[in-house]
């Protein structure tokens, strides 16, 4: 399981005087359940982008189990993320025109010539696990709650040891949001993955074991 070590992380955007994110030191143990909270614009998404290697670490270090993302180029970072990180975003980023099953399989399909044997079955199992009745249903015909559950299944297909969700319940109604929150927690438990969730939702944050409160890019 991955343990995270952050040192001297600083993110600046052109035109902003203050750094958007400044974290001198942060450590998470493997398998942690972490909420990242704070007002809108405080830097939650920026932090998650750094932790998942979606953006290049220019200042400081972000090391997962000893792998410093700051030292990786763009291609290796993509590969590292594909191998270790499952992502769930506020907007589900499903592809209309493809079935739920094809959406779950898509990143893997694009990563290799042939799907490894059993991966499609695993995807079906995950869709069943997240409670989707018909894996062949087209993505655009799903309800929003179902869409997010498909996104959760997709995030888990490659068996990541880090599960990251950015406001996963923000665009869902309370009931669907609660269902997705349940799923994230349960699946993180089942897989033993480290779970990091940026959220406004105090009920979701309350169910995680640790809360990182951000304000203007700083931990408080």
């Amino acid at each position: 399981m991955a343990a995270l070590e952050v040192r001297d992380l600083e993110v600046r955007f052109a035109g902003l005087g203050q750094p958007a994110l400044a974290i001198p030191e942060l450590e998470l143990e493997a398998g942690a359940r972490v909420a990242v909270t704070g007002p809108s614009g405080c830097g939650k998404t920026t932090l998650l982008n750094m932790l998942t290697g979606l953006e290049c670490v220019r200042h400081g270090h972000v090391a997962w189990a000893g792998t410093d993302l700051a030292s990786l180029g763009e291609g290796p970072r993509d590969r590292w993320r594909a191998a270790h990180v499952g992502l769930v975003m506020q907007d589900f980023h499903l592809f209309p025109g493809l079935s739920a099953l094809d959406n779950v399989l898509l990143p893997q399909r694009l990563s290799r010539w042939r799907l490894p044997a059993g991966l499609a079955d695993e995807a079906r199992r995950l869709l069943d696990r997240v409670g989707l009745p018909d894996p062949r249903q087209k993505a655009e015909t799903l309800s929003r709650g179902q869409m997010q559950r498909v996104a959760v299944a997709r995030a888990l297909l490659a068996r990541p040891d880090i599960l990251v969700a950015d406001e996963p319940t923000a665009s869902l109604d309370a009931e669907a949001g609660a269902a997705v929150a349940d799923l994230l927690l349960a699946l993180a438990d089942e897989t033993g993955a480290t779970l990091i969730v940026a959220t406004h939702d105090p009920r979701l944050a309350g169910r995680l074991t640790r809360t990182l409160r951000l304000d203007a890019g700083r931990l408080i």
Partner: peptide, 20 residues
């Protein structure tokens, strides 16, 4: 670009995005 970029975020290699 959101859709295409998203593919990479979810684990598709860069080359696949180019190839698509």
């Amino acid at each position: 670009r959101r859709q295409i970029g998203a593919l990479r975020a979810f684990g598709a290699p860069r080359a696949a995005v180019f190839a698509i």
